[in-house]
Design a protein around this nucleic acid. Structure first.
Length: 503
RNA sequence: GCUCCCGUAGUCUAGUCCGGUCAAGGAUUCGGGGCCUUCGACCCCGUAACGCGGGUUCGAAUCCCGCCGGGAGCACCA
């Protein structure tokens, strides 16, 4: 059992990294890792694995971590959106994962072209002019396209023609020559480069022949000096593609490690929906709780250190994870419970007027934290009029209840009177074991807007001390949960805006 | 359908490579109790797992085979 002093300077809980195997062939100080987001969305809870798995190994081996924006041209459906470059950088910063260097795929086309030339010279590729669907059909059937027998000199001419604008988008692609008898259909003669007329937000229309992910990485993992590639298991086939290219050219490349899918049950993360709703204004920005973005977790008072431990507890396993957000909440609670002041809050308030209220009982001093006397006291206004949560009151009509820390009353009315208030009869002040309800003194009650995880707004009243709350303060609303005061809450005269974190 | 991967309690995980120390450890959840003027925290107790079937072995969660279940890939996206 820790005493108060120890708790107040509690160090972050760090995983021992039991579920993370040693990196093959790694030595301290010589590891180079990379993470490669595509700039079309902010980082969300699911990206935690990307961030913290890399960060774990960087620390463990005192290595370097590169941030490489995987911003090739994408597709019509999946476009590079320029605002996300900075947003993602900000997300990394928020997560406490600072890259040692930042690269852009879109700056590296020259290198990709040079490697393409080497592959062609080795006879490892050909320019295919099949329409996409025919290509797909042939691949599924293990059938060769007409151009597959192309000699490398011819391929080079065709490749130059692609580069010089002799083909329109969709008319020609550069394909790797693998083996059509390859049992895995996904591996047969993958496309290396395709033509796109889309304008790129960073390099405009400077290029129209763009590499696909696996080839670009075959080049960049080697040229950037990456020593170990960590990626999700949806990219396993790409490992083989990269190795195939390296074998063909006689170069050696880094080994690959993978993690499985991470699903947080409550978190429905859908990048396109998030982007749409944020832009339409339906969501309250990139930190809307419904996005489950890193920013939204921060906004809810969930620390990135808690997220980190949560993520690291899964290790690097290939099995899929289906976990409840409660596990993350428990991790966060460990960190904040002992240092978070308690406050009273009542939702959907109903007024309670107490008959025979004790004279002179106008305020009371309460500890900021029941287990931490060193955190001091605050004074709150008391009766004879109070506000209670409607649901609390309705559940106890006709019975005796205790206004927590104060006194006991009998709820005499069976329904609110015309002015909306209920009357109660003072009983005594003895601390008895009857239902204890949160209350807010009618004088100086502070209006509060509580933003829920589902984006809903709950209005209520908090005790007067909340008027002094500053943005980013975290409180525990007793019998409700942990909340964080939203930034910008003081810029308007409205209610104090708080965001629900977790129970 | 084809290819690859995964399978320890409700959930996550340690152990599996190098079989005995595992009648399986931890976390979280859940149930019961204690304490505290919170439905939070803390303390105590409890429920609960090696997917199934064979084989090898003195001995298997660990090795082998088969099956079942789950996932990923099969894009001119990443």
């Amino acid at each position: 059992m820790l005493g108060g002093a120890e708790l107040s300077r509690a160090v972050p809980v760090r995983s021992e990294g039991g579920g993370f195997p040693d990196l093959p062939g790694a030595s301290v100080g010589k590891v180079v890792l990379r993470m490669a987001p595509f700039p079309n969305g902010v980082l969300h809870i699911g990206h935690g694995r990307l961030l913290y798995a890399q960060e774990h190994y960087r620390e463990r081996y005192q290595g370097k971590l590169l941030l490489v924006f995987d911003d090739t041209i994408g597709s019509e459906e999946k476009r590079v959106e320029p605002e996300f470059y900075d947003l993602i950088l900000g997300d990394c910063d928020l997560a406490g994962v600072r890259p040692d260097a930042v690269y852009y795929k879109s700056d590296r086309l020259a290198a990709h072209y040079a490697w393409a030339r080497r592959v062609i010279d080795k006879g490892g590729a050909y320019v295919c002019r099949c329409p996409a669907d025919l290509l797909r059909e042939n691949r599924a059937a293990g059938r060769a396209c007409a151009e597959r027998t192309q000699a490398s000199g011819e391929t080079l001419d065709e490749w130059e023609k692609m580069l010089s604008g002799g083909y329109a988008p969709g008319e020609a692609v550069l394909r790797l020559r693998t083996d059509l008898a390859e049992p895995d259909p996904a591996f047969r003669d993958r496309v290396l480069f395709r033509i796109s007329d889309l304008e790129h937000p960073r390099v405009g229309r400077k290029y129209r022949v763009w590499p696909l992910l696996e080839f670009s990485w075959a080049v960049d993992d080697v040229e950037l000096g990456v020593t170990h590639v960590l990626r999700g298991k949806e990219l396993v086939i790409e490992d083989r593609m990269q190795r195939y290219v390296w074998d063909l050219l006689g170069v050696s490349g880094p080994p690959f490690l993978h993690w499985g899918l991470l699903r947080v049950r409550e978190a429905k993360v859908a990048k396109s929906k998030t982007n749409r709703e944020v832009r339409s204004g339906l969501y309250d920005g990139w930190a809307d709780p419904r996005t489950w973005s890193l920013r939204s977790l921060d906004r809810r008072g969930i620390s990135m250190d808690a997220l980190r431990s949560f993520i690291l507890s899964f290790g690097l396993s290939l099995s899929d994870i289906d976990v409840a957000a409660e596990t993350l909440y428990a991790e966060n609670r460990k960190r904040i419970d002992a240092s978070t002041p308690r406050r009273a809050f009542v939702s959907d308030p109903v007024r309670l007027d107490i008959k025979d209220y004790p004279a002179g009982l106008h305020e009371i001093s309460l500890p900021n934290h029941p287990d931490r006397p060193d955190m001091g006291q605050r004074t709150v206004a008391a009766g004879p009029s109070f506000y209670l949560a409607r649901a609390d009151v309705l559940a106890h009509l006709g019975t005796e209840i205790r206004l927590k820390d104060l006194l006991n009353v009998r709820l005499t009315d069976s329904a609110p009177s015309e002015d909306g208030a209920l009357r109660a009869q003072f009983v005594d002040r003895e601390n008895r074991r009857i239902p204890r309800l949160q209350w807010v003194g009618a004088q100086n009650a502070v209006p509060v807007d509580l933003l829920g995880v589902d984006g809903s707004h709950l209005t209520g009243l908090a005790e007067q001390s909340l008027a002094a709350a500053r943005a980013r303060d975290i409180f525990q609303f007793e019998r409700v949960g942990f909340v964080r005061v939203d930034s910008g809450t003081k810029e308007t005269d409205g209610p104090v805006r708080v965001v629900f974190g977790h129970p």
